[in-house]
Design a binder for these strands. Structure first.
Lengths: 250, 250
DNA sequence: CGATCTTATTTGTCTGACAAATACATGTCA
DNA sequence: TGACATGTATTTGTCAGACAAATAAGATCG
Protein backbone atom coordinates (compact mmCIF):
# COMPACT_ATOMS: atom_id res chain seq x y z
CA UNK A 1 0.00 0.00 0.00
CA UNK A 2 1.20 3.47 -0.77
CA UNK A 3 0.86 6.30 1.61
CA UNK A 4 0.50 9.71 0.12
CA UNK A 5 3.07 12.12 1.46
CA UNK A 6 1.06 13.90 4.08
CA UNK A 7 1.54 17.62 4.12
CA UNK A 8 2.18 18.91 7.55
CA UNK A 9 1.97 22.67 7.13
CA UNK A 10 -1.27 24.57 7.07
CA UNK A 11 -3.21 25.22 3.91
CA UNK A 12 -2.90 28.97 4.17
CA UNK A 13 0.86 28.64 4.42
CA UNK A 14 0.99 26.44 1.35
CA UNK A 15 -1.09 28.86 -0.63
CA UNK A 16 1.16 31.68 0.47
CA UNK A 17 4.16 29.72 -0.73
CA UNK A 18 2.60 29.00 -4.09
CA UNK A 19 1.64 32.60 -4.67
CA UNK A 20 5.03 33.73 -3.51
CA UNK A 21 6.79 31.56 -6.03
CA UNK A 22 4.41 32.62 -8.73
CA UNK A 23 5.29 36.22 -8.01
CA UNK A 24 9.02 35.67 -7.84
CA UNK A 25 9.02 33.61 -11.00
CA UNK A 26 7.27 36.44 -12.75
CA UNK A 27 3.98 34.67 -13.38
CA UNK A 28 2.48 37.74 -11.82
CA UNK A 29 4.35 40.80 -12.88
CA UNK A 30 4.84 43.78 -10.65
CA UNK A 31 1.89 46.08 -10.65
CA UNK A 32 -0.39 43.34 -11.85
CA UNK A 33 -3.52 42.44 -9.95
CA UNK A 34 -3.96 39.00 -8.46
CA UNK A 35 -7.32 37.29 -8.89
CA UNK A 36 -9.88 38.47 -6.38
CA UNK A 37 -10.04 36.72 -3.05
CA UNK A 38 -13.27 35.00 -4.01
CA UNK A 39 -11.70 33.82 -7.22
CA UNK A 40 -8.64 32.49 -5.44
CA UNK A 41 -10.82 30.79 -2.86
CA UNK A 42 -12.79 29.06 -5.58
CA UNK A 43 -9.66 28.15 -7.50
CA UNK A 44 -7.94 26.60 -4.49
CA UNK A 45 -11.15 25.14 -3.16
CA UNK A 46 -10.81 26.82 0.22
CA UNK A 47 -12.62 29.51 2.10
CA UNK A 48 -11.94 33.16 1.65
CA UNK A 49 -10.61 33.46 5.20
CA UNK A 50 -7.89 30.96 4.39
CA UNK A 51 -6.94 32.82 1.24
CA UNK A 52 -6.81 36.03 3.18
CA UNK A 53 -4.45 34.58 5.75
CA UNK A 54 -2.17 33.57 2.92
CA UNK A 55 -2.38 37.03 1.38
CA UNK A 56 -1.57 38.67 4.69
CA UNK A 57 1.59 36.62 4.85
CA UNK A 58 2.62 38.03 1.51
CA UNK A 59 1.63 41.51 2.55
CA UNK A 60 3.89 41.18 5.58
CA UNK A 61 6.77 40.63 3.16
CA UNK A 62 5.81 43.68 1.15
CA UNK A 63 5.12 41.49 -1.85
CA UNK A 64 1.56 42.64 -2.36
CA UNK A 65 -0.55 45.59 -1.41
CA UNK A 66 -4.30 45.73 -1.33
CA UNK A 67 -6.84 48.33 -2.36
CA UNK A 68 -10.57 48.29 -1.97
CA UNK A 69 -13.29 48.95 -4.46
CA UNK A 70 -13.74 48.06 -8.11
CA UNK A 71 -10.37 48.34 -9.83
CA UNK A 72 -9.12 47.36 -6.37
CA UNK A 73 -7.63 44.05 -5.38
CA UNK A 74 -4.29 42.65 -4.35
CA UNK A 75 -1.45 44.05 -6.40
CA UNK A 76 2.05 42.78 -6.76
CA UNK A 77 4.38 45.49 -5.60
CA UNK A 78 8.03 45.86 -6.13
CA UNK A 79 9.28 46.37 -2.62
CA UNK A 80 11.11 49.65 -2.47
CA UNK A 81 14.74 49.76 -1.47
CA UNK A 82 13.54 51.44 1.66
CA UNK A 83 11.25 48.60 2.59
CA UNK A 84 13.80 45.95 1.85
CA UNK A 85 16.49 47.80 3.72
CA UNK A 86 14.04 48.18 6.56
CA UNK A 87 13.25 44.51 6.77
CA UNK A 88 16.93 43.80 6.55
CA UNK A 89 17.83 46.13 9.37
CA UNK A 90 14.93 44.73 11.32
CA UNK A 91 16.48 41.31 11.02
CA UNK A 92 19.91 42.63 11.94
CA UNK A 93 18.55 44.47 14.94
CA UNK A 94 16.80 41.34 16.02
CA UNK A 95 20.00 39.37 15.80
CA UNK A 96 21.79 41.90 17.94
CA UNK A 97 18.91 42.35 20.35
CA UNK A 98 18.64 38.66 20.95
CA UNK A 99 22.30 38.54 21.74
CA UNK A 100 23.18 36.06 19.05
CA UNK A 101 25.63 38.54 17.60
CA UNK A 102 28.41 40.00 19.65
CA UNK A 103 29.50 43.60 19.55
CA UNK A 104 32.97 42.58 18.55
CA UNK A 105 31.60 40.76 15.55
CA UNK A 106 29.65 43.76 14.38
CA UNK A 107 32.59 46.07 14.75
CA UNK A 108 34.87 43.64 13.01
CA UNK A 109 32.36 43.26 10.21
CA UNK A 110 32.14 46.96 9.87
CA UNK A 111 35.90 47.34 9.86
CA UNK A 112 36.26 44.85 7.07
CA UNK A 113 33.23 45.61 4.95
CA UNK A 114 33.06 49.34 5.37
CA UNK A 115 36.74 49.48 4.60
CA UNK A 116 36.04 48.15 1.13
CA UNK A 117 33.00 50.32 0.84
CA UNK A 118 34.98 53.47 1.54
CA UNK A 119 37.52 52.58 -1.09
CA UNK A 120 34.70 52.58 -3.61
CA UNK A 121 33.38 55.80 -2.17
CA UNK A 122 36.74 57.46 -2.69
CA UNK A 123 36.43 56.67 -6.36
CA UNK A 124 32.75 57.41 -6.92
CA UNK A 125 31.77 60.11 -4.47
CA UNK A 126 30.09 63.10 -6.06
CA UNK A 127 29.90 66.55 -4.56
CA UNK A 128 26.29 65.78 -3.82
CA UNK A 129 27.19 62.88 -1.57
CA UNK A 130 29.80 64.94 0.19
CA UNK A 131 27.36 67.74 0.78
CA UNK A 132 24.87 65.35 2.32
CA UNK A 133 27.49 63.98 4.64
CA UNK A 134 28.57 67.51 5.49
CA UNK A 135 25.00 68.46 6.31
CA UNK A 136 24.60 65.50 8.62
CA UNK A 137 27.87 66.29 10.32
CA UNK A 138 26.83 69.90 10.81
CA UNK A 139 23.66 68.71 12.43
CA UNK A 140 25.69 66.65 14.86
CA UNK A 141 27.60 69.74 15.86
CA UNK A 142 24.50 71.58 17.01
CA UNK A 143 24.23 72.08 20.75
CA UNK A 144 21.20 70.98 22.66
CA UNK A 145 20.61 67.88 20.60
CA UNK A 146 19.02 64.91 22.28
CA UNK A 147 20.89 61.65 22.17
CA UNK A 148 18.34 60.29 19.76
CA UNK A 149 18.70 63.21 17.39
CA UNK A 150 22.46 62.97 17.52
CA UNK A 151 22.28 59.29 16.80
CA UNK A 152 19.88 59.91 13.95
CA UNK A 153 22.31 62.35 12.40
CA UNK A 154 25.03 59.78 12.93
CA UNK A 155 23.10 57.25 10.88
CA UNK A 156 22.43 59.83 8.18
CA UNK A 157 26.11 60.67 8.01
CA UNK A 158 27.20 57.09 7.58
CA UNK A 159 24.48 56.42 5.08
CA UNK A 160 25.74 59.29 3.00
CA UNK A 161 29.19 57.76 3.05
CA UNK A 162 27.77 54.44 1.95
CA UNK A 163 25.71 56.10 -0.77
CA UNK A 164 28.92 57.58 -2.10
CA UNK A 165 30.02 54.09 -3.06
CA UNK A 166 27.34 54.35 -5.73
CA UNK A 167 26.47 50.67 -5.52
CA UNK A 168 22.97 49.49 -4.70
CA UNK A 169 23.97 46.11 -3.37
CA UNK A 170 26.56 47.53 -1.04
CA UNK A 171 24.12 50.14 0.10
CA UNK A 172 21.63 47.41 0.82
CA UNK A 173 23.87 45.44 3.14
CA UNK A 174 25.76 48.31 4.71
CA UNK A 175 22.59 50.00 5.81
CA UNK A 176 21.82 46.92 7.83
CA UNK A 177 25.19 46.91 9.53
CA UNK A 178 25.01 50.58 10.33
CA UNK A 179 21.56 50.08 11.76
CA UNK A 180 22.78 47.20 13.87
CA UNK A 181 25.33 49.48 15.49
CA UNK A 182 22.81 52.09 16.53
CA UNK A 183 21.97 50.60 19.91
CA UNK A 184 25.65 50.48 20.75
CA UNK A 185 26.25 54.04 19.71
CA UNK A 186 23.24 55.02 21.75
CA UNK A 187 24.56 53.30 24.80
CA UNK A 188 27.97 54.85 24.40
CA UNK A 189 26.36 58.24 24.11
CA UNK A 190 24.22 57.90 27.20
CA UNK A 191 26.97 56.64 29.43
CA UNK A 192 30.10 58.27 28.14
CA UNK A 193 28.83 61.43 26.53
CA UNK A 194 31.80 62.40 24.46
CA UNK A 195 30.29 63.68 21.30
CA UNK A 196 33.21 65.85 20.35
CA UNK A 197 35.47 62.87 19.77
CA UNK A 198 32.93 61.27 17.45
CA UNK A 199 32.52 64.54 15.60
CA UNK A 200 36.27 64.91 15.24
CA UNK A 201 36.54 61.46 13.77
CA UNK A 202 33.69 62.13 11.39
CA UNK A 203 35.47 65.27 10.31
CA UNK A 204 38.52 63.16 9.72
CA UNK A 205 36.49 60.73 7.59
CA UNK A 206 34.84 63.44 5.56
CA UNK A 207 38.08 65.26 4.85
CA UNK A 208 39.65 62.04 3.74
CA UNK A 209 36.74 61.46 1.40
CA UNK A 210 37.01 64.94 -0.02
CA UNK A 211 40.67 64.32 -0.71
CA UNK A 212 39.79 60.87 -2.04
CA UNK A 213 42.54 59.41 0.05
CA UNK A 214 41.99 55.71 0.60
CA UNK A 215 44.71 55.56 3.21
CA UNK A 216 43.25 58.38 5.26
CA UNK A 217 39.78 56.89 5.00
CA UNK A 218 41.05 53.59 6.30
CA UNK A 219 42.84 55.30 9.11
CA UNK A 220 39.80 57.32 10.09
CA UNK A 221 37.54 54.29 10.02
CA UNK A 222 39.88 52.35 12.26
CA UNK A 223 40.07 55.31 14.58
CA UNK A 224 36.29 55.40 14.82
CA UNK A 225 35.90 51.71 15.45
CA UNK A 226 38.72 51.60 17.97
CA UNK A 227 37.09 54.46 19.79
CA UNK A 228 33.74 52.71 19.78
CA UNK A 229 35.25 49.49 21.07
CA UNK A 230 36.96 51.28 23.94
CA UNK A 231 34.09 53.45 25.01
CA UNK A 232 31.64 50.64 24.66
CA UNK A 233 33.53 48.60 27.18
CA UNK A 234 33.65 51.60 29.45
CA UNK A 235 29.93 52.18 29.03
CA UNK A 236 29.21 48.57 29.77
CA UNK A 237 31.15 48.69 32.98
CA UNK A 238 29.35 51.83 34.07
CA UNK A 239 26.00 50.43 33.16
CA UNK A 240 26.57 47.18 34.92
CA UNK A 241 27.94 48.99 37.94
CA UNK A 242 24.88 51.15 37.96
CA UNK A 243 22.59 48.19 37.62
CA UNK A 244 24.33 46.37 40.42
CA UNK A 245 24.04 49.38 42.66
CA UNK A 246 20.33 49.64 42.08
CA UNK A 247 19.47 45.97 42.17
CA UNK A 248 22.11 44.35 44.33
CA UNK A 249 20.13 41.13 44.66
CA UNK A 250 20.63 38.66 41.85
CA UNK B 1 -13.02 71.65 16.55
CA UNK B 2 -10.42 68.99 16.82
CA UNK B 3 -10.19 66.11 14.42
CA UNK B 4 -8.85 62.91 15.78
CA UNK B 5 -5.92 61.62 13.78
CA UNK B 6 -7.65 59.12 11.55
CA UNK B 7 -5.81 55.88 11.16
CA UNK B 8 -5.53 54.78 7.59
CA UNK B 9 -4.12 51.29 7.86
CA UNK B 10 -6.18 48.25 8.59
CA UNK B 11 -6.84 47.03 12.09
CA UNK B 12 -5.11 43.73 11.56
CA UNK B 13 -2.00 45.55 10.41
CA UNK B 14 -2.02 47.78 13.44
CA UNK B 15 -2.39 44.83 15.76
CA UNK B 16 0.45 43.09 13.99
CA UNK B 17 2.60 46.18 14.51
CA UNK B 18 1.76 46.38 18.19
CA UNK B 19 2.51 42.74 18.79
CA UNK B 20 5.68 43.02 16.77
CA UNK B 21 6.96 45.85 18.91
CA UNK B 22 5.95 44.04 22.04
CA UNK B 23 8.01 41.08 20.94
CA UNK B 24 11.03 43.07 19.88
CA UNK B 25 10.99 45.13 23.04
CA UNK B 26 11.01 41.94 25.01
CA UNK B 27 7.56 42.25 26.53
CA UNK B 28 7.08 38.76 25.23
CA UNK B 29 10.24 36.78 25.64
CA UNK B 30 11.32 34.16 23.18
CA UNK B 31 9.65 30.84 23.81
CA UNK B 32 6.84 32.48 25.68
CA UNK B 33 3.25 31.94 24.67
CA UNK B 34 1.08 34.81 23.52
CA UNK B 35 -2.46 35.03 24.85
CA UNK B 36 -4.84 32.77 22.98
CA UNK B 37 -6.51 34.14 19.88
CA UNK B 38 -9.82 34.44 21.68
CA UNK B 39 -8.12 36.30 24.47
CA UNK B 40 -6.40 38.70 22.07
CA UNK B 41 -9.64 39.23 20.20
CA UNK B 42 -11.39 40.15 23.41
CA UNK B 43 -8.52 42.35 24.53
CA UNK B 44 -8.39 44.33 21.29
CA UNK B 45 -12.15 44.27 20.87
CA UNK B 46 -12.00 42.69 17.43
CA UNK B 47 -12.96 39.38 15.94
CA UNK B 48 -10.78 36.35 16.01
CA UNK B 49 -10.37 36.44 12.23
CA UNK B 50 -8.76 39.86 12.46
CA UNK B 51 -6.41 38.73 15.17
CA UNK B 52 -5.48 35.74 13.09
CA UNK B 53 -4.59 37.88 10.10
CA UNK B 54 -2.33 39.89 12.35
CA UNK B 55 -0.73 36.74 13.70
CA UNK B 56 -0.15 35.39 10.20
CA UNK B 57 1.75 38.54 9.39
CA UNK B 58 4.05 37.86 12.30
CA UNK B 59 4.35 34.21 11.35
CA UNK B 60 5.46 35.28 7.89
CA UNK B 61 8.35 37.08 9.54
CA UNK B 62 9.24 34.02 11.59
CA UNK B 63 8.49 35.90 14.76
CA UNK B 64 5.95 33.42 16.05
CA UNK B 65 5.04 29.82 15.50
CA UNK B 66 1.79 28.15 16.36
CA UNK B 67 0.86 24.80 17.82
CA UNK B 68 -2.54 23.30 18.34
CA UNK B 69 -4.05 21.71 21.37
CA UNK B 70 -3.94 22.54 25.07
CA UNK B 71 -0.47 23.76 25.92
CA UNK B 72 -0.59 24.97 22.32
CA UNK B 73 -0.86 28.53 21.14
CA UNK B 74 1.26 31.12 19.41
CA UNK B 75 4.83 31.11 20.62
CA UNK B 76 7.49 33.72 20.18
CA UNK B 77 10.37 32.17 18.36
CA UNK B 78 13.87 33.39 17.96
CA UNK B 79 14.33 33.35 14.21
CA UNK B 80 17.15 31.04 13.29
CA UNK B 81 20.19 32.39 11.51
CA UNK B 82 19.01 30.26 8.65
CA UNK B 83 15.61 31.86 8.55
CA UNK B 84 16.96 35.37 8.80
CA UNK B 85 19.55 34.69 6.16
CA UNK B 86 16.84 33.17 4.04
CA UNK B 87 14.57 36.17 4.24
CA UNK B 88 17.56 38.35 3.54
CA UNK B 89 18.58 36.48 0.43
CA UNK B 90 14.96 36.36 -0.58
CA UNK B 91 14.99 40.13 -0.56
CA UNK B 92 18.26 40.28 -2.43
CA UNK B 93 17.07 37.82 -5.05
CA UNK B 94 13.96 39.88 -5.49
CA UNK B 95 16.01 42.99 -6.04
CA UNK B 96 18.01 41.26 -8.71
CA UNK B 97 15.04 39.54 -10.27
CA UNK B 98 13.15 42.76 -10.56
CA UNK B 99 16.08 44.33 -12.29
CA UNK B 100 16.60 47.09 -9.79
CA UNK B 101 20.12 45.87 -9.22
CA UNK B 102 22.55 45.46 -12.05
CA UNK B 103 24.92 42.56 -12.49
CA UNK B 104 27.87 44.87 -12.46
CA UNK B 105 26.82 46.20 -9.12
CA UNK B 106 26.57 42.76 -7.61
CA UNK B 107 29.91 41.71 -8.92
CA UNK B 108 31.51 44.92 -7.78
CA UNK B 109 29.94 44.48 -4.37
CA UNK B 110 31.24 40.98 -4.17
CA UNK B 111 34.70 42.04 -5.25
CA UNK B 112 34.87 44.65 -2.55
CA UNK B 113 33.08 42.94 0.29
CA UNK B 114 34.20 39.39 -0.25
CA UNK B 115 37.72 40.68 -0.57
CA UNK B 116 37.58 41.85 3.02
CA UNK B 117 35.81 38.71 4.04
CA UNK B 118 38.53 36.49 2.62
CA UNK B 119 41.19 38.42 4.48
CA UNK B 120 39.41 37.51 7.68
CA UNK B 121 39.04 33.95 6.51
CA UNK B 122 42.77 33.72 5.95
CA UNK B 123 43.24 34.55 9.61
CA UNK B 124 40.44 32.52 11.15
CA UNK B 125 39.89 29.49 8.95
CA UNK B 126 39.98 26.18 10.77
CA UNK B 127 40.69 22.84 9.17
CA UNK B 128 37.00 22.15 9.55
CA UNK B 129 36.06 25.03 7.29
CA UNK B 130 38.62 24.03 4.74
CA UNK B 131 37.36 20.48 4.72
CA UNK B 132 33.84 21.67 4.10
CA UNK B 133 34.97 23.79 1.20
CA UNK B 134 36.99 20.89 -0.13
CA UNK B 135 33.98 18.60 0.04
CA UNK B 136 31.86 21.06 -1.91
CA UNK B 137 34.55 21.48 -4.49
CA UNK B 138 34.86 17.71 -4.87
CA UNK B 139 31.14 17.53 -5.44
CA UNK B 140 31.48 20.05 -8.24
CA UNK B 141 34.03 17.85 -9.91
CA UNK B 142 31.63 14.94 -10.23
CA UNK B 143 30.55 14.18 -13.75
CA UNK B 144 26.92 13.93 -14.67
CA UNK B 145 25.84 16.70 -12.35
CA UNK B 146 22.85 18.77 -13.36
CA UNK B 147 23.32 22.50 -13.60
CA UNK B 148 21.22 22.92 -10.49
CA UNK B 149 23.31 20.49 -8.49
CA UNK B 150 26.50 22.11 -9.67
CA UNK B 151 25.17 25.50 -8.71
CA UNK B 152 24.09 24.18 -5.33
CA UNK B 153 27.59 22.91 -4.68
CA UNK B 154 28.88 26.28 -5.80
CA UNK B 155 26.82 28.01 -3.15
CA UNK B 156 27.96 25.53 -0.53
CA UNK B 157 31.56 26.14 -1.46
CA UNK B 158 31.31 29.88 -1.16
CA UNK B 159 29.37 29.63 2.05
CA UNK B 160 32.14 27.55 3.51
CA UNK B 161 34.61 30.27 2.57
CA UNK B 162 32.42 32.86 4.23
CA UNK B 163 32.00 30.71 7.32
CA UNK B 164 35.76 30.63 7.59
CA UNK B 165 35.69 34.33 8.40
CA UNK B 166 34.17 33.23 11.70
CA UNK B 167 31.96 36.29 11.96
CA UNK B 168 28.20 36.00 12.23
CA UNK B 169 27.45 39.44 10.89
CA UNK B 170 29.59 38.98 7.82
CA UNK B 171 28.10 35.59 7.27
CA UNK B 172 24.68 37.10 7.44
CA UNK B 173 25.24 39.66 4.71
CA UNK B 174 27.57 37.65 2.50
CA UNK B 175 25.10 34.80 2.26
CA UNK B 176 22.68 37.25 0.70
CA UNK B 177 25.17 38.45 -1.86
CA UNK B 178 26.18 34.95 -2.81
CA UNK B 179 22.56 34.00 -3.17
CA UNK B 180 21.94 37.01 -5.35
CA UNK B 181 24.59 35.80 -7.75
CA UNK B 182 23.06 32.37 -8.18
CA UNK B 183 20.79 33.23 -11.11
CA UNK B 184 23.74 34.68 -12.95
CA UNK B 185 25.91 31.67 -12.33
CA UNK B 186 23.05 29.54 -13.49
CA UNK B 187 22.70 31.45 -16.69
CA UNK B 188 26.41 31.32 -17.36
CA UNK B 189 26.32 27.58 -16.82
CA UNK B 190 23.45 26.93 -19.17
CA UNK B 191 24.80 28.98 -22.03
CA UNK B 192 28.53 28.71 -21.75
CA UNK B 193 29.06 25.38 -20.04
CA UNK B 194 32.61 25.77 -18.90
CA UNK B 195 32.64 24.17 -15.54
CA UNK B 196 36.30 23.31 -15.59
CA UNK B 197 37.33 26.95 -15.48
CA UNK B 198 35.14 27.60 -12.47
CA UNK B 199 36.51 24.54 -10.76
CA UNK B 200 40.07 25.61 -11.51
CA UNK B 201 39.43 28.99 -9.97
CA UNK B 202 37.84 27.44 -6.94
CA UNK B 203 40.89 25.25 -6.58
CA UNK B 204 42.95 28.41 -6.75
CA UNK B 205 40.85 29.99 -4.00
CA UNK B 206 41.00 27.00 -1.74
CA UNK B 207 44.73 26.54 -2.09
CA UNK B 208 45.22 30.20 -1.29
CA UNK B 209 43.11 29.77 1.81
CA UNK B 210 45.05 26.73 2.90
CA UNK B 211 48.25 28.72 2.54
CA UNK B 212 46.56 31.63 4.25
CA UNK B 213 47.85 33.91 1.58
CA UNK B 214 45.83 37.09 1.42
CA UNK B 215 47.44 38.10 -1.84
CA UNK B 216 46.60 34.84 -3.56
CA UNK B 217 43.07 34.94 -2.25
CA UNK B 218 42.58 38.38 -3.64
CA UNK B 219 44.02 37.32 -6.95
CA UNK B 220 41.80 34.26 -7.16
CA UNK B 221 38.70 36.22 -6.25
CA UNK B 222 39.40 38.76 -8.95
CA UNK B 223 40.03 35.97 -11.39
CA UNK B 224 36.65 34.45 -10.57
CA UNK B 225 34.76 37.69 -10.86
CA UNK B 226 36.49 38.71 -14.05
CA UNK B 227 35.61 35.35 -15.50
CA UNK B 228 31.99 35.71 -14.43
CA UNK B 229 31.76 39.16 -15.92
CA UNK B 230 33.14 38.01 -19.25
CA UNK B 231 31.13 34.86 -19.61
CA UNK B 232 28.01 36.55 -18.39
CA UNK B 233 28.20 39.01 -21.21
CA UNK B 234 28.80 36.14 -23.60
CA UNK B 235 25.85 34.24 -22.21
CA UNK B 236 23.67 37.27 -22.47
CA UNK B 237 24.53 37.72 -26.12
CA UNK B 238 23.83 34.07 -26.83
CA UNK B 239 20.57 34.15 -24.97
CA UNK B 240 19.37 37.33 -26.60
CA UNK B 241 20.43 36.06 -29.99
CA UNK B 242 18.53 32.90 -29.31
CA UNK B 243 15.49 34.80 -28.22
CA UNK B 244 15.59 36.95 -31.29
CA UNK B 245 15.84 33.91 -33.52
CA UNK B 246 12.84 32.28 -31.93
CA UNK B 247 10.64 35.31 -31.56
CA UNK B 248 11.73 37.70 -34.24
CA UNK B 249 8.74 39.91 -33.75
CA UNK B 250 9.43 42.44 -31.03
C1' DC C 1 -21.74 70.57 -19.08
C1' DG C 2 -21.23 69.68 -14.29
C1' DA C 3 -22.46 68.23 -9.86
C1' DT C 4 -24.64 64.64 -7.40
C1' DC C 5 -26.59 60.13 -6.74
C1' DT C 6 -26.66 55.38 -7.50
C1' DT C 7 -24.61 51.05 -8.18
C1' DA C 8 -21.41 47.43 -8.65
C1' DT C 9 -17.14 45.54 -7.13
C1' DT C 10 -13.68 44.37 -3.99
C1' DT C 11 -11.32 44.26 0.32
C1' DG C 12 -12.02 44.61 5.59
C1' DT C 13 -14.33 42.82 9.51
C1' DC C 14 -17.67 40.14 12.22
C1' DT C 15 -20.14 36.02 13.80
C1' DG C 16 -20.68 31.44 14.85
C1' DA C 17 -19.68 27.04 13.85
C1' DC C 18 -17.09 22.71 13.21
C1' DA C 19 -12.64 20.05 12.30
C1' DA C 20 -8.10 18.64 13.80
C1' DA C 21 -4.42 18.21 16.86
C1' DT C 22 -2.96 17.23 21.40
C1' DA C 23 -2.07 17.09 26.55
C1' DC C 24 -4.14 15.27 30.45
C1' DA C 25 -7.20 12.68 33.26
C1' DT C 26 -9.85 8.58 33.61
C1' DG C 27 -11.14 4.02 33.21
C1' DT C 28 -10.34 -0.83 31.93
C1' DC C 29 -8.28 -5.05 31.86
C1' DA C 30 -4.49 -8.19 32.61
C1' DT D 1 0.16 -2.22 39.86
C1' DG D 2 0.95 -1.20 35.10
C1' DA D 3 0.04 -0.74 30.33
C1' DC D 4 -3.22 0.66 27.19
C1' DA D 5 -7.38 2.48 25.42
C1' DT D 6 -10.74 6.26 25.90
C1' DG D 7 -12.75 10.36 26.68
C1' DT D 8 -12.38 15.37 27.40
C1' DA D 9 -10.92 19.98 27.41
C1' DT D 10 -8.25 23.38 25.03
C1' DT D 11 -6.41 25.76 21.24
C1' DT D 12 -5.42 26.55 16.49
C1' DG D 13 -7.16 25.66 11.53
C1' DT D 14 -10.85 26.11 8.33
C1' DC D 15 -15.38 27.08 6.74
C1' DA D 16 -19.73 29.64 5.45
C1' DG D 17 -22.31 33.64 5.14
C1' DA D 18 -23.07 38.23 6.24
C1' DC D 19 -22.43 43.26 6.48
C1' DA D 20 -19.32 47.52 6.45
C1' DA D 21 -16.31 50.54 3.97
C1' DA D 22 -13.94 52.26 0.11
C1' DT D 23 -14.16 53.55 -4.54
C1' DA D 24 -14.58 53.78 -9.62
C1' DA D 25 -17.79 54.23 -13.17
C1' DG D 26 -22.18 55.05 -14.92
C1' DA D 27 -26.87 57.38 -14.40
C1' DT D 28 -29.55 61.30 -13.28
C1' DC D 29 -30.85 65.89 -12.76
C1' DG D 30 -30.18 70.91 -12.69
Amino acid sequence: MQHEPIVKSSISKQIAEQLRHAIINGQFKTGERLPTEDELAKRYGVSRATVREALKRLAAQNLIRSRRGPTGGNFVTQPTHEELAESLSGAATLLVGLGSMSIDEIIEARRVLQGGCLKLAARHATSDHIEQARAALDRQKLTGLTDEAFCQADVTFHRALVDASDNGMIRFVMYAIIEALVPITNMVLSYVKERHEIIAIHEHLLTALENRSEVDLDQALNRLLDYLTETFQEAQIQRDGHKLAVTPQE
